[in-house]
């Protein structure tokens, strides 16, 4: 390593250590921006999770006439599985439906009513999930073919058609609004960070003038500020990484209740490399680019 580069590195490290308030202000604002970026990333993850959960809860239920043979139902199941739009087909016998009802209502008056009639009023059914909510229409049309009408009692989609459409629209809107919000907040974070760093470097204007006066070249002036910005970005990212991890760990149960089972800490662990790239990438970029641009402004004058 050349002596000049060594001097620049040492000078940048000295500035980082010695300029307490400047370093703290820069580090703090980068930390806020990185933390915000991480939170937005998490928010986006939560939106996709909620979207998937909502879609999972949408299905078409097909109820079969009493005494329909299991083989006939299996045939329909097989045909449905061959339809490209179908994601999952699940069979519930009349007994399964009875047991589920008993389990869900064992402590209320519906259970007493069921016992009073002394028979199983439930029908065998299959529940179909589409790969995409917009595909429920074509699955429904498929089930209304004449060949199935001898065994099918009813296809429970006539009401869900609207519900399905509404849920689809809602999830689309949530995603669009969420992404727009993420974009807007990211822009604000970048602008606020850049201007704060610019203001903190404003205090260095006189120092930069002195450096120019004693004949320091551009690179020799910019170099230490670049290193200082790099160190601020690195420390802020490291701090954000640790604190965000701790927050995800501590709040995982509380937030899981709010976000339909979305586990923040599991998400953090599953996407750790993407988060590391996001946090360290944004931190280092903000630290170095902001300090370079701010010093550049004084070098021109």
């Amino acid at each position: 390593m050349s002596k000049k580069i060594q001097k620049i590195l040492k000078s940048g490290w000295d500035n980082f250590q010695r300029q307490g308030i400047l370093t703290f202000a820069t580090l703090f604002i980068i930390f806020i921006a990185v933390f915000l970026a991480s939170s937005l990333y998490l928010f986006a993850g939560a939106i996709y999770f909620l979207n998937d959960r909502l879609q999972e809860r949408i299905d078409i239920s097909v109820f079969f006439k009493e005494n329909t043979a299991r083989e006939d139902i299996v045939k329909i199941e097989d045909q449905l599985k061959a339809v490209p739009e179908v994601k999952k087909v699940e069979y519930f016998s009349a007994d399964d439906a009875y047991q589920k009802f008993v389990q869900d209502h064992k402590d209320d008056k519906y259970y007493e009513a069921l016992q009073a009639i002394e028979m199983n009023p439930f029908l065998a059914s299959i529940h179909i999930q589409a790969k995409n909510p917009s595909q429920y229409g074509s699955i429904s049309t498929f089930l209304k073919k004449d060949e199935f009408q001898s065994v099918i009692q009813n296809v429970n989609d006539y009401k869900r058609g609207t519900v399905i459409q509404k849920l689809t629209d809602l999830t689309k809107n949530i995603r669009t609004i969420g992404l727009a919000l993420i974009g807007f907040l990211s822009l604000i974070a970048v602008l606020v960070t850049f201007n704060t760093i610019k203001l903190t470097i404003f205090s260095q204007k006189a120092e930069i003038e002195i450096m120019r006066l004693v004949g320091a070249k551009r690179r020799f002036i910019q170099g230490p500020y670049f290193i200082q910005g790099l160190l601020c970005g690195l420390s802020a990212s490291l701090l954000a990484f640790v604190l965000f991890g701790a927050m995800a760990f501590l709040l995982q149960e509380k937030l899981s209740g709010i976000f339909l089972g979305f586990n923040m800490f599991d998400f953090y662990k599953a996407n750790i490399w993407e988060l590391v790239a996001l946090q360290f990438g944004s931190g280092l970029l903000l630290g170095t680019v902001s300090s370079l641009l701010a010093v550049q402004a004084y070098l021109k004058k």
Binding site: N15, Q19, E207, I210, L213, G215, A216, F220
Partner: peptide
């Protein structure tokens, strides 16, 4: 017009560092 975050030694040596002096 001294560089406030540099020591006395560093302030003086800075004027040499910006030239091509040997360490």
């Amino acid at each position: 017009k001294l560089l406030s975050y540099k020591t006395v030694f560093e302030n003086v040596s800075y004027a040499l560092e910006v030239t091509d002096y040997q360490n």
